[in-house]
Amino acid sequence: MKFRVYRYNPEKDAKPYMQDYDVPVADTDRMLLDAIVKLKALDDTLSFRRSCREGVCGSDAMNINGKNGLACITNLRELKEPVVLRPLPGLPVIRDLIVDMTQFFKQYHSIKPYVVDDRPLPEKERKQSPTERAELEGLYECILCACCTTSCPSFWWNPDKFVGPAGLLQAYRFIADSRDQVTAERLDNLEDPYRLFRCHTIMNCVDVCPKGLNPSLAISKIKELMVKRTV
């Protein structure tokens, strides 16, 4: 199977280039990651991240034939050849398919990604009804792979100022949690021309999310809450 892969090693390459590979693929190789692992056995200088190989750890996000996705749950048979592999767009490349995710995680951390409830804790669990718990569906499942955020033009232009779809999805995850007591502060934290309002509903995030989540919907719910509290 034919592959065209983005290569860049800062120690020896003045600039990035695309390298062509022909990888012998067996019937048992189902997913793109299987083929990339084979490729590495042929050329051990190719660097990429991978771990769980089942779509839950978020390591092997990359740009596959122009679209962000996880190599481990991308069906090899459905890919057009040559399969063009590039690092996630919008973040600095460290080497080959490995990007520097510092900015992505900085934005995630900026939304205070933890339940804040400073009331005295009960001996046992805090109660939460199944309906309240259901509010977290479609939010807590995020694997922080960055497919969405790095497909968002608003993030490309303002990675330091716009929280991005992944961070905003998580912002809403904590707003939506019945146990969290600081919704007002969370909204204040996003009340800014860039942090939230740079989202122009382009919807690339929804299109690429490998877990089928909808950051755009979460963002619109945050915007609704902003409007509600001003009236």
Partner: peptide, 23 residues
């Protein structure tokens, strides 16, 4: 074990719930 689970709930773990709000 029970204390470890309650602590995790206090940290914000999104556990599934029963109708009475318990885990």
């Amino acid at each position: 074990a029970p204390q470890a689970v309650y602590e995790l709930e206090h940290f914000g773990m999104p556990f599934d719930r029963n109708a009475d709000g318990t885990l």
